[in-house]
Design a protein around this nucleic acid. Structure first.
Lengths: 204, 204
DNA sequence: GTGTACCGGTACTCGACCGTATCGGTACAC
DNA sequence: GTGTACCGATACGGTCGAGTACCGGTACAC
């Protein structure tokens, strides 16, 4: 519904939806994601989002049929690879930089992932959106790093630890709050890379 | 209210609450935890628990004042150390057995942790109960293993990876579903210990 | 047998939110 | 300037669950 293409006589549809600019849309998306982080998925209401963005509930329902669809759209719009473009020529340094980059976003992303973690078990589209927005891109970037390291001969191909590096990075990021009561910051993650990830790979 | 002590003339209060036996209580607790795993914390209703255990809402509210208190009580009653008593005399083998034990409970605990993960941010008592039921005991057991390994000289005291082992184990357990779409079973975790944890500690 | 305390059932109030409908206002198209 | 389409506001009916109140039944104490 966001932009039900075709069928418009000949003028492009985009010109019709005059009011909701992409910037305005971002406000809606930012608002809903922030409310999810703060109150959890279930507690987020369309009314709340409407109120906090000073728009009307009708406006939201005109654009998105249901809450999960709305949230999924927000996630897709939020897609962005945290550590894309990291390529220092050294796997160890790549991983350190990835850790730093992840640490800078840790709080926001962790809370979002946590808040949505259960909702996705009951909504396929939401699950897909979450994976494509917050999980897959980062995993793919990590795997590329590792592949480059292998290609350069820094790590033997088929090294058993390779398979677990993404899970380790993500996992530590994810559970630190519940273990230590604080989000994993860049320092913590870099030290983790130095102390556990690199040794596991036989690096350094 | 569960047992508002004192003041009873002289007969012990326990004899007064004749009907709800400890076994019956366990039914309530099991039911609510199961519903949390399935539907998430927010979606669990006292009505639902009452219905599924064929008791009255009044009965639940007589024992526990609010939903979070009820859930917290259920968690406390559920406390149990998954890998207590593991002590093979070898750190590597201890960790392997811990991985196996964790894998056997992976699905249940992971779902519970996930479902409650966000609710705890808004209820202190619930957070404490969750930590004491599912997190701290396991962490403590892990740290004991590690301490024994250090004491036996298998790992140098102050080894930098030591600090991260619990987070690694828990983290991998926790994020596997979102990365691979399946819970971490015993095999996966044992291979993880072999491939990443032990090498990180310089073992094996 | 009598009393008591708690159980299970039902009905209730109250508040929150969903999703819809209605309406006046306004930017933009032409 | 006129028309149109969408915005924001508000109001409404419907649902659902929290928590409370009441009530009849029953196990157990004595």
């Amino acid at each position: 519904m966001t932009s039900q293409a075709a069928e418009g006589p000949e003028t492009v549809v985009a010109s019709r939806r005059s009011k909701i600019t992409p910037e305005r849309e971002r406000e809606f998306f930012d608002a809903v994601l922030e409310q999810i982080r703060e109150c959890g998925y279930d507690s987020v209401t369309m009314e709340g989002v409407a109120a906090s963005t000073r728009c009307s509930k009708s406006t939201l329902y005109r654009q998105w049929k249901t809450k999960p669809q709305f949230v999924a759209a927000a996630l897709r719009a939020n897609r962005r690879v945290r550590f894309a473009g990291i390529d220092t020529g050294s796997l160890a340094e790549d991983l350190r930089q990835a850790a730093r980059a992840a640490g800078d976003w840790s709080g926001k992303d962790t809370r979002l992932l946590q808040a949505l973690g259960h909702a996705v078990t009951s909504d396929q589209e939401l699950a897909k959106a979450l994976r494509e927005a917050l999980v897959h891109p980062e995993i793919a970037a990590l795997e590329e790093m590792l592949a480059r390291g292998v290609a350069r001969g820094e790590v033997r191909a088929g090294h058993p630890a390779l398979e677990y590096i993404p899970a380790m990075m993500f996992g530590v990021l994810r559970v630190r709050p519940v273990l230590n009561g604080q989000y994993a910051d860049a320092d913590y993650l870099v030290r983790f890379v130095e102390s556990a990830v690199l040794p596991a790979l036989g690096l350094r």
